[in-house]
């Protein structure tokens, strides 16, 4: 399966984007997000980027005020996920130009479209930034 969810959370622990690749109901999601955010945000820069929580392994990385948290299976390559987070951020950077929390908040649907081009059902679809952004740019042009 690989990726089970992707979260973007700000320094205050508010969710800015949440994409789940397995079904969790509203209460479960809120509880999970709360627990993970508490666990990850309490860690310092020197500590490693992996946290084990319930049956998930959380790979997280901080960019300025925004945390990117990816929940994966135990068999997943943690370092590759870390690299994937960076690819995601670079892709968003290319589109938004130095992406920040507000870009994602106010363009939530676009952030999701990008994610859709990169991950589907927990698997990686595409790793070329140009290919990921092509449909989104096309749509922007059309409107």
């Amino acid at each position: 399966m690989g990726i089970r969810f992707i979260l973007m959370v700000n320094k205050q622990g508010q969710t800015r984007l949440a994409q789940y690749y397995e079904y969790l109901n509203l209460e479960e999601r809120r509880a999970l997000e709360g627990e993970i955010v508490r666990k990850c945000l309490a860690r310092n820069e020197q500590q490693c980027s992996f946290v084990e929580h319930r049956t998930y392994k959380i790979v997280y990385r901080r960019y300025a005020s925004l945390f990117f948290l990816v929940g994966v299976d135990n068999g997943e390559n943690e370092l590759a996920i870390l690299e994937f987070i960076h690819l995601l951020v670079e892709t968003m950077d290319r589109h938004f130009g130095n992406v920040c929390e507000l870009d994602i908040m106010f363009h939530l649907e676009k952030a999701h479209f990008m994610l859709e081009e990169m991950v589907m059902n927990g698997c990686i679809v595409e790793t070329s930034k140009a290919n990921i952004l092509a449909p989104i740019q096309l749509m922007d042009k059309a409107s």
């Binding site: 390559n77 690299e83 994937f84 990686i124 790793t127 930034k129």
Partner: peptide, 16 residues
């Protein structure tokens, strides 16, 4: 250039 990460071509494909 499109797939290069730190001098390696598409590490994700390598890994899969």
């Amino acid at each position: 250039p499109e797939y290069d990460i730190a001098g390696i071509t598409d590490p994700f494909l390598h890994i899969r």
